[in-house]
């Protein structure tokens, strides 16, 4: 038999999607984009009265539809403020402005039309940019929960010790004024980057950040406490041999996420131990050689990561 069954032999009929899916989508769309969709129609209606009004109407319509460097903010609890002014039920935040919440207040930001950011109590954020190619905020201190539906690398959150780059996801990010904190991803992927150091964090995993160090090594929340503590010790407390040994011993298949990141973070003399442990749990594909991995060959590391990622 030919090793590739012809498509017609697969006999997989295309299945009609139920009509109810569109009804649900419309309901969700109505809730999220109704106000945006309604605005231009209003202007055109007003413009029908007189030629002058039409001209003005068109002008205003264009102005209203030009993306503005500001986001809508709604008060969820208490009395959040933008700059020195308390916001009412709703407000707008512009580039450069800061939003603050106290111990009893919370706010929600609509990040253009790509998602939302929930701002927890005792948090301070600054809006940095709202361009079609870049939506960026700075988490000065506190905690936010972001939920974004956008192409990868469009939404960014800066802290003093990291930048969370959205790869299509939902996550929470916590940081103090110096950048010490933690990222927890609940959906999709986030790339946590800082001064050439990069941690890829999938759903279910977390990654700590630390002042002057940047992102630590990502780990799954359901990993053993021993592993999680040892990762923290390794990242931010001297990278001891005991911590590395604990991580290697405690690692499950899924924890190859942590081990793969450690390949490029351990001392060269320790790299073979890390390689050996990953290979025991999840052997590399035939195209990935031990030597290339130990040399930190980018292509080989990427190939192995792609293979391992199916288990993350």
């Amino acid at each position: 038999m030919n090793s590739r069954p012809p498509k017609e032999r697969l006999e997989l009929p295309l299945v009609k999607a139920p009509d109810s899916i569109w009804t649900s989508i419309e309901a969700a769309l109505d809730a999220q984009i109704q106000s945006t969709a309604a605005r231009p129609r209003q202007f055109w209606a007003w413009g029908l009265g007189a030629a002058a009004l039409i001209v003005i109407g068109v002008f205003v319509w264009r102005a209203a539809n030009t993306p503005k460097p500001e986001w809508n903010v709604v008060r969820v609890d208490g009395q959040p403020s933008i700059g020195s002014r308390p916001i009412g039920d709703a407000a707008k935040i512009a580039a450069g402005e800061r939003l603050r919440t106290d111990a009893s207040s919370r706010a929600r930001i609509a990040v253009s039309d790509i998602g939302t950011v929930e701002v927890s109590p005792n948090t301070q954020i600054q809006m940095v940019a709202a361009r079609p190619s870049e939506q960026r905020l700075k988490l000065i201190s506190g905690e936010i929960a972001a939920s974004v539906s956008a192409p990868p690398r469009l939404f960014f959150v800066d802290t003093p010790a990291s930048t969370a780059v959205d790869l299509g996801c939902a996550y929470t990010m916590k940081a103090d004024g110096e950048g010490n904190g933690i990222l927890r991803v609940t959906l999709g992927w986030v790339s946590l980057e800082w001064e050439g150091r990069e941690s890829l964090v999938p759903a279910g995993a977390s990654c700590r950040t630390r002042k002057k160090v940047g992102p630590g090594t990502p780990f799954f929340e359901d990993a053993s406490q021993l592993l999680k503590d040892a990762v923290a010790g390794f990242d931010f407390n001297g990278a001891s041999d005991a911590d590395l040994e604990t991580v290697l011993a405690e690692a499950r298949v899924r924890d190859t996420l942590t081990l793969w990141h450690l390949l490029s973070r351990v001392a060269p003399a320790d790299r073979p131990r890390v390689y050996r442990r990953i290979a025991e749990i999840a052997p590399p594909p035939a195209t990935v050689s031990r030597d290339k991995i130990l040399q930190l060959d980018r292509a080989a590391l990427k190939l192995w990561r792609e293979e391992l990622a199916w288990k993350w």
Binding site: L12, P13, A17
Partner: peptide
């Protein structure tokens, strides 16, 4: 999209419907 999800999830129609809705919502909003 529905068919891919349906076959991916071993014929689970509820899962396929959820995935289809999720995909189009993300698509349309972005």
């Amino acid at each position: 999209v529905y068919s891919i999800a349906l076959y991916f999830f071993h014929g689970d129609e509820a899962a396929a419907g959820d995935i289809t809705q999720q995909v189009f919502l993300k698509l349309l909003l972005g």
